[in-house]
């Protein structure tokens, strides 16, 4: 069974925000709510990298673990969804989530923050697939239409990928092998730090191996 995953290739991401507005467009997300957003590390200095973040549809989602009303459920595709009719807007899931995915439409000192909203991997919610009711509460259900999340489908540089995790892993591996050089190689900076840009094997250097 295919396991749905997002994978953002930081070597490709240019922080153009297409994923963010594609999401807004597809689901008519109102102002102030962001199911997806860009995170940039080392902004403005060499080594700057960005990735696009949303709900990562964890295997063992901590949001579901802490929800007092048990409104979360996970589909056979591994997509983490929730039931807004059950949600009480307590905000626990926000604190549990390592990615800051849950969004709330309102804030009060006490009580509800409104119905939590988050990325559905374009898979709607508990209402009948692609019914107007489902759209009202959760946005469109592209997976049921045989498509993938629009953020990934529209990504400008094919940085953000969505789909069968095994396929995405293969694609990413192919890319890593192809890049094969210095800072492009997986784990290079972890092993050698940022100071060594891998110039000996760097782009354009003679004697590079591989294709």
């Amino acid at each position: 069974m295919a396991r749905m995953k997002f994978l953002c290739d930081a070597e490709r991401c240019i922080e153009c925000n297409a994923c963010v507005t594609a999401c807004k467009n597809e689901h008519e997300i109102p102002w102030g709510m962001n199911r997806r957003r860009l995170i940039t590390l080392k902004d403005g200095v060499p080594g700057e990298r960005s990735i696009s973040m949303a709900c990562m549809h964890c295997n063992d989602p901590p949001c579901a673990g802490v929800c007092p009303v048990d409104c979360f459920y996970q589909t056979a595709d591994g997509v983490v969804l929730h039931n807004k009719d059950l949600c009480i807007g307590c905000g626990y899931c926000f604190y549990a989530c390592p990615f800051g995915a849950p969004q709330y439409p309102q804030t009060t000192n006490f009580g509800s923050r409104g119905k939590m909203d988050k990325c559905t991997f374009c898979t709607g919610g508990p209402e009948v697939d692609n019914s107007p009711e489902e759209y009202q509460k959760y946005g469109s259900n592209r997976l049921a239409e045989g498509k993938l999340p629009l953020c990934a489908e529209m990504c400008s540089t094919r940085a953000l990928m969505a789909g069968d995790g095994d396929v995405l892993a293969d694609i990413y591996q192919e890319r890593s092998l192809r890049r094969g050089y210095g800072s492009g190689a997986y784990g290079w900076s972890t092993a050698y730090g940022n100071a060594d840009k891998g110039r000996a094997f760097g782009p354009g250097a003679s004697g590079t191996k591989g294709s």
Binding site: A2, Y73, T75, T123, A144, K147, G163, D164
Partner: peptide, 13 residues
Amino acid sequence: DQLKSRYQDNAHV
């Protein structure tokens, strides 16, 4: 139905 798989490995994907 809520939990069923919706992903389709079709030409589009």
